[in-house]
């Protein structure tokens, strides 16, 4: 019984201590501009649909950010997965592209900001589609090309690296035992390489989504942005609303952890063979 309560309590003990400590310090400091109290922040989080600092609701801004991340991330996945498959399967393609792509890998997504702004400015999907007014304009104008590019860069490399690793580390014995059955190249790809690499690809997608979500804050600090949770945080700082800053940070953390959790569930459900067959 004690043990069961222990396992139930263990994961929530650290956050609990953290919250108590936070509130204790906040009350003692007594300055909202340095550390807002737990009650102020939880008020914001409990009513996420309430308008804050006349920038729309917290939930609305998180949603806009999520859509941005998804669009940028989707492009990264669409490009990185096939490229990674090709690079993992063919030594020729790998050696001709690896050095080139390796040169861009160390550049932090944030370092792209000035160049990307020079390219795209404040152009958005609305600009691309030539829509200049109405509800659609408001929505599409949130999808700034510069932001999407930064998110794309952030998600691209983790997905690429993991896909290459997944394809190139298929055990030789699995390849050979399928080849002696007379499997064609197409069969080898669809029935051996792809399923064998799938767990790595999904891991790459999970890591990539995490990075994309983190790149978001910097992307939303770009000029021309008037919404999104990243912008909400920076704007809240300029109007000295630290409670909104913290509430925004908490939302980023919770959403990021949730996205990660979804991928982990997928990994456990569909790829348990990988863990068990070791």
């Amino acid at each position: 019984m004690i043990q069961r309560t222990g396992t139930f309590l263990a994961p929530i003990l650290a956050p609990l201590v953290f919250l108590v400590l936070w509130n204790f310090i906040a009350v003692n400091v007594g300055n909202d501009l340095i550390l807002p109290g737990l009650d102020q922040v939880s008020d914001l989080l409990l009513y996420p649909y309430k308008d804050v600092i006349s920038m729309g609701s917290l939930a609305g801004n998180v949603w806009i950010s999520l859509v941005r991340v998804m669009v940028g991330y989707l492009w990264a996945a669409i490009l990185a997965i096939p490229l990674g498959l090709a690079m993992g399967a063919s030594r020729k393609i790998y050696s001709s592209l690896n050095l080139f792509l390796g040169l861009f890998r160390p550049i932090p997504p944030l370092a792209w900001v000035p160049l990307v702004l020079a390219w795209f400015g404040v152009a958005s999907f609305a600009t691309l589609l030539g829509i200049e007014e109405g509800d659609w304009y408001i929505w599409l104008n949130n999808l700034k090309l510069s932001m999407l590019f930064i998110i794309f860069i952030g998600a691209f490399y983790p997905i690429l690296s993991n896909t290459i690793y997944g394809v190139s580390s298929v055990p030789k014995i699995l390849i050979e035992s399928s080849r002696v059955l007379g499997a064609s190249r197409t069969d080898m790809f669809c029935k051996v390489f792809l399923p064998a690499a799938a767990p790595s690809i999904v891991t790459g997608m999970r890591v990539g989504l995490g990075v994309a979500w983190m790149c978001l804050v910097s992307a939303e600090m770009l000029p021309g942005s008037i919404s999104g949770v990243g912008y909400l945080i920076t704007h809240a700082y300029t109007v000295a609303r630290i409670d909104v800053v913290v509430a925004g940070m908490v939302s980023i953390g919770v959403v990021g952890a949730l996205l990660d959790w979804i991928f982990r569930v997928l990994e456990v459900r569909y790829f348990s063979w990988q863990r068990l067959s070791r």
Binding site: I173, K191, P195, A196
Partner: peptide
């Protein structure tokens, strides 16, 4: 082969059916 060579993501029957499947 000497090493275990079944495809770990397939069930046993799907493994045995692999040859006929690719043909």
């Amino acid at each position: 082969f000497q090493e275990y060579s079944l495809l770990p993501w397939r069930s046993v029957v799907e493994n045995v059916a692999l040859g006929p499947e690719v043909h």
